[in-house]
Each structure stands twice: as C-alpha cells, then as structure tokens.
Design a protein around this nucleic acid. Structure first.
Lengths: 232, 232
DNA sequence: TTCTTCTATAGGTTATACTAATATAGCATT
DNA sequence: AATGCTATATTAGTATAACCTATAGAAGAA
C-alpha cells in the first residue's frame, strides 16, 4: 500500500552522475571537473559527500586529484585493474601460481588474435624485437634480456588491439613483479638451454607472421608452460 | 639525484594500515572493523579521513558498510573486479566485441586446465549438467536453455580451482548481460542448427573427462568462435 | 512467551573552519 | 629581456561538531 522512500546513498548518486557525464561524452579524458565546492552547490549536497564520491572514483582509476588544481578525468587508465587484482591476490595467497595460469589465458589468446590481425608494419616491429632478443640472448646481461623478452610479449598483446588484453597483461606483469620479485630473471636463469627459448620465440613469431592463429596459440602455450614449470 | 619528499595523504595511510592488517591476518573475512569514531581516535585522525579510506575500500570491494552495524571485511569478493571492468568498458565503447575475445581467452584456458584437474566427482556433475542441457535443447524454453548453458561453462571454470579465472568469467558475464541484454538468448536463437551446439558441448565434455587438455582448449575455442560470429 | 517500544550505537550527512598546494599576475632586481 | 620574489586567489586536504537514520538488543507490555 505505502511505497518505500528512496534509499540510495548520496555519494552513490554523485558517482552515478559523474559516470553518466562521462558515458554521455560531456566529460572526456583529461577534462577538469568543477571544483568540489561548486559541485557541492550544484548538486546541493555537502562537500563531504562530493569528496567521498571523488575518492571512490579516484580509487577505481577514473579520476585523478591534484591538490591546488582540481579533479581530472584520467588520461591513462592502464592501471585501473591493478588494485582489485591485488586484492584478489591478497585473499588468494595460498596459490600464487593462479596468476600464472591467468597470464597463459591472456597471452595464448593474444597470440591467436595477433596472428589474425597482424599488419605488415607490426611484422617488421616484431621482427626487430626478436632480432634484438636473439642478439642479447648470447650475451650475459639478464636485465636487458628480460627487457626485450617482455617487449616481445607486450608487442603481441598490442597487435591484438584489444584493450582488455593489453591492460590485463600489464596488470598481471605488475602483480608478478610485486610479489615475485625478479621473477623473469629467475626464470631465465633457471632455463639451462637458452637456445630453446630462442627457438620457441621464433616459432611463435613465424606462426604470427604467417597468420597461423592455431599454431601461434599452441606455441605460446608451450612457451609459457615451460616457464611456469621452471617457476614452481 | 634528489629524492622527492614524502607526501602521502592521510586517507592513504589509513587504507594501507587496514590492508596490512588483512595481509597479516589480524583481520579476516567477515570480521568487523572498529567503529569509525574509534578508528579516528586510535589513529589520531579525523573521522572524515577514516570515512574516505573506508569508502575507497568499499569501492574496491574489500569491505562492506552496513549502517547501524559497522564496517566488515567482505566474505564474498566475487564482484571485486566488476566496477573497474565496467570503467574500462565505458572508455572502450567503440569496440564491445573486445569483451568477447577476453571471454574466449578465459574460457579456453579454463577448459585446458579443467581437463588436467578434473576429479571423478566433477565428471559426474558435468555430465549431469550436460544431460539436462541436451534435454532442454529440444524443448522451446530459451531461458532454461540459457541457464544450463551458463552452468556448463561456469562448472568448467569451477573445476580449474583458479580464483582469477572463476572471478573474471563471472564478471565478464555480468558485463555482457549489462551491455548486451539477452545476449545469450539472442545467440541461441541465431544459431539455426541446435544439434551443432549439442555436438560442440559434447566434444568439450569428452575432452575434459579424458584429460585431453589440448583438445578441450581447441574445442572450446571453436565453440566460442561460432557464438561470436553469430553475435556480430 | 510474544510482541512492541525504547535506547544505545553504528554509519550517513551536513556545515564550518582551517591547512597546504598550485597557478597566476604583478613587481622588482639583475 | 630574463629571472626571482611576493601577494593573492583558488583548489584540494584535514579536522571538528552537530545532527539524521538504520540496526540490534534490552526493556517493557500484552
């Protein structure tokens, strides 16, 4: 008979409004929001509520607060996922290897899609990275080796053009580095037969440039499984 | 050469302390935090700062605020990723199909791992779901069909025991449902040859119960690619 | 016992005052 | 003309106090 009154929290309303303004294109990346006081008066709520909303938007990576300047829609939202993934990792600390399996999921699909979508320009870039990688593979410097290795995998993700894949891979890498320090270097040291790694990279590369998506995926899986077994 | 001076915001300190208490095991899932006023006095900061910290922790899904009761460490953090993924989706609205490729990434790996880790009990459960699915496939009700279809895929993710995979799949499903309403029903309607779907599900099932991870992965990919093409 | 009401305490919201960082403009020195 | 300084306005960051609202549990009434 009697209808219940509204319930939603004020700060939730504020979050919603700002999100909508972004969806509708009123606010774009890099734009500055009205000042907290102005927002408060425009929405007719207290500045505290505005701030709680802004704080939330900041944590999920949507805006950036700069004291003395204002609140801005983030240009680069590549780290959006990092915090939540870290949280999941925290509660999952018994099984850190799970993150490695997630990485395989992403990278295998990345290789598959890359083989389908690779352009001529991509092929050249990928070839360059591979050449550099093979060159330093014979020298001693682990760090440089790790750098190009990372670049190779990252480039493949880039070729897919899939924002989620690029982003997830980035975040997984960050997470791995935070928790398993120097993971990559350790892995590379653990693998005795360096030429095996070179060979695997080349197989992946060849599959991608010949648009053989199935093979690209399975070679990538083979490559990452090898690395995983050495990590355990 | 010159190092920047410290700056950290007060609420960031608060967040850090609470996170550390969780990592160190002082606070466990379901535990109640001290009241806001008590936290404020214990940490010697204002309640405003405490609240901004708590609000942030709430948004990333770490705690839950219940008015009149208190703030609690979340029991079930399955929705942790949803918000950030939505944000990414917002900025990526030109290419909604990217989420489908991410889904393939997750599910292909899920099938691969499931084939390796499946137990006898899992096999029975999966078989039951498959039987129900085949049964309703011939009847008309799309909704029930969609329900069991979803259950089949979810069970495979569950078998992996990988928290990230289960969680990501959940979130991707939510996201798909939010943005592509009734996606699953639409897909099922679009695929003329129902028996093809049955056949694909059975191939995946057989690969998993015979521990053939390679085949499980490739059949799963085939299955999802078919669905994707019908969605575009 | 069962139901209602009261009460203490929790989070939710507002208002106000102050602190700290930043950009800008204007002025002075060189 | 370039640099350095200072005052000022504007912004976010923090603190405090008061009050609103939801909840659980105690107290009381039936």
């Amino acid at each position: 008979m009697f209808k219940p009154i509204k319930n939603k929290k004020v700060y939730e309303h504020v979050i919603e409004q700002i999100q909508n303004m972004i969806i509708d294109g009123v606010l774009k990346q890099g734009d500055r929001l009205p000042s907290e006081r102005e927002l408060a008066s425009q929405l007719n709520v207290s500045r505290t509520s505005i701030r709680e909303a802004l704080r939330s938007l900041q944590i999920i990576g949507l805006i950036e607060s700069r004291q003395g300047e204002g609140n801005f829609i983030k240009e680069n939202i590549d780290e959006t996922l990092f915090e939540p993934l870290s949280i999941m990792f925290m509660f999952n600390k018994d099984k850190p290897e799970d993150i490695l399996d997630l990485r395989i999921a992403i990278e295998v699909q990345a290789a598959y899609l890359a083989a389908k979508r690779v352009t001529e320009e991509d092929k050249k870039e990928l070839e360059n990275i591979l050449k550099k990688l093979n060159k330093v593979e014979k020298e001693g410097n682990e760090k440089i080796r790790a750098k190009y290795d990372k670049e190779f995998h990252y480039k493949i993700a880039k070729i897919t053009g899939n924002y989620f894949i690029i982003n997830l891979l980035n975040n997984i890498s960050s997470l791995m580095e935070s928790f398993i320090i120097y993971a990559r270097e350790m892995i590379l040291k653990a693998v005795d037969d360096k030429s095996l790694l070179i060979y695997q990279h080349e197989k992946i590369y060849n599959a991608i440039i010949t648009n053989d998506s199935e093979k690209a995926a399975s070679y990538m899986r083979e490559h990452l499984e090898l690395i995983n077994t050495h990590l355990m």
